[in-house]
Simulated assay, not measured.
Amino acid sequence: MLNHLENLAQRVGGSNELIDHWLHARKQLIVAYYALVGLKPNKEKHTPLNEKALENFCHNLIDYLSAGHFHIYDRIVEMVEGKDSPHLTITQKIYPALHDNTKVIMAFHDRFTTDEIDEDACLALHDALSHIGETLAARFALEDNLIQVAFEVWQHNQPSDNNEHEVLNQPA
């Protein structure tokens, strides 16, 4: 996931401040996930699970989901599409899938942040971590579709003069 994110950031990074912040938040979430599952980025070494890592991951998870649903998705549609855009169909397909994905992620969050982690819950958590990783990967793929559409529209509308970076990074 981290390598994919780095590749995406290299392709679209700097095109829009909103996207840059979103990708940075995604990186923080992935690093928190790796810490929770005991993986160090770019290493094969595992570390034991701890509740602090779970708390940090869940905090990053909620922040990431909230930013997407309550801030980023709408701003991308507003900035890129407008009401009569041919790209509106893409978001109408992506949003329901993101909503369903959010339900799965929130079920994980609710399950593992309400109770203490005893031995049985720890075993269930280990099983759930694999599933939540797959769920996050699916979410990132959906969001990447939004980012790609936005990037293509911004590239197409990019001014030809030297003020292009200024125009693309104006707040909505």
Rank of each mutant, 00 (worst) to 15 (best):
D110P: 06
R26V: 06
D118L: 09
L23R: 01
G82W: 07
T102M: 12
I62Y: 03
L125Q: 04
M106W: 08
R75Q: 13
K52Q: 14
G38L: 00
N42A: 15
E116N: 14
G133M: 04
N101T: 07
D84V: 04
L49A: 04
A107R: 10
M106I: 15
H69D: 03
L23K: 00
F112N: 02
D20S: 02
H46T: 07
N16S: 08
V37M: 13
I62L: 13
S85I: 02
V37R: 12
L125S: 05
L125R: 02
L88T: 09
P96K: 09
A35H: 05
K103Q: 15
Y33V: 00
I132G: 03
N50Y: 07
E134V: 06
Q92C: 08
E51N: 13
T89V: 11
V77G: 02
I90R: 06
H71T: 13
L136H: 07
Q92D: 14
I117K: 06
D118Y: 00
T135G: 01
H69W: 10
I76S: 06
Y34S: 08
Y34T: 03
T102Y: 10
Y33L: 12
E116S: 11
G14E: 04
A121T: 05
E55W: 08
E51G: 08
A121G: 09
E44L: 13
L125M: 08
A32K: 00
M106P: 04
M79V: 07
D84A: 14
I105L: 13
H71C: 11
H99L: 14
L61Q: 06
V31T: 06
H109W: 10
L18S: 01
H71G: 11
H109Q: 07
L61R: 00
D110C: 09
L123S: 10
H109T: 04
T135D: 05
K103A: 15
K45P: 05
G133R: 07
L123P: 03
S66V: 11
P96R: 02
L98D: 02
L88S: 10
S130L: 13
N42Q: 13
M106Q: 10
W22E: 08
V31K: 00
R111F: 09
L49M: 11
L23H: 03
I62V: 15
L125T: 01
G13A: 01
F70L: 13
M106A: 01
M79P: 01
